[in-house]
């Protein structure tokens, strides 16, 4: 995934309108691009071509349905550890070796390692966390989500 900003002239006003409009509510109808294009004052073929180009240029990462991971089954838990600096690299290796560790970030805090466990079954979360504690000799704090709020996040293009 592209992690650097696009040049200022990479997007025109129509591209920006597409990016802003299609962050929700793509139609579930036989000709959804035609419908979405009409709302933007475009024709179907040019909307499809522009989305293709935006994807090729890295302005969008994905186009399609966004699924709730838990609704599809599986269990997820955010975990954190306070890892002493001199052991950090060793602990990264031990933690990342678990396939259940989906992502792992170093963060600026006494709790300096934050990772997500993604497991098939809820009981596997505690099992993997205990295993990491045993291997590293450090506590794994578990922060399961108690409530997820609806997100109004919009990137203004």
């Amino acid at each position: 995934m592209r992690r650097t900003p696009l040049p200022a002239d990479a997007l025109d006003a129509t591209d920006r309108a597409i990016l802003n409009a299609l962050q929700d509510g793509f139609p579930l109808t036989p000709h959804p691009f035609a419908e979405a294009a009409a709302a933007l004052g475009l024709d179907e073929a040019s909307l499809i071509a522009r989305i293709q180009r935006l994807r090729d240029d890295g302005a969008i990462t994905r186009f399609g349905p966004f699924f709730d991971a838990e609704a599809m089954g599986g269990a997820f838990c955010l975990c954190a550890m306070a890892v002493p600096a001199e052991k950090f690299d060793e602990v990264v290796t031990l933690v990342n070796a678990h396939a259940e560790v989906a992502h792992n970030y170093e963060r600026s805090h006494a709790l300096n390692m934050w990772f997500v466990l993604a497991c098939e079954q809820p009981r596997d979360i505690a099992r993997v966390a205990r295993k990491i504690e045993k291997e590293t000799g450090l506590s794994v704090l578990q922060f399961p989500k108690e409530h997820e709020f609806f997100i109004g996040f919009r990137v203004l293009a």
Binding site: M1, R2, I18, L19, L22, Q23, D24, G25, F26, L28, I51, L54, G58, A59, I60, T61, R62, F63, G64, P65, F66, F67, D68, V155, A157
Partner: peptide, 8 residues
């Protein structure tokens, strides 16, 4: 959750 594009 939604059918949409994800801006980078």
């Amino acid at each position: 959750r939604r059918i949409a594009l994800a801006p980078n």
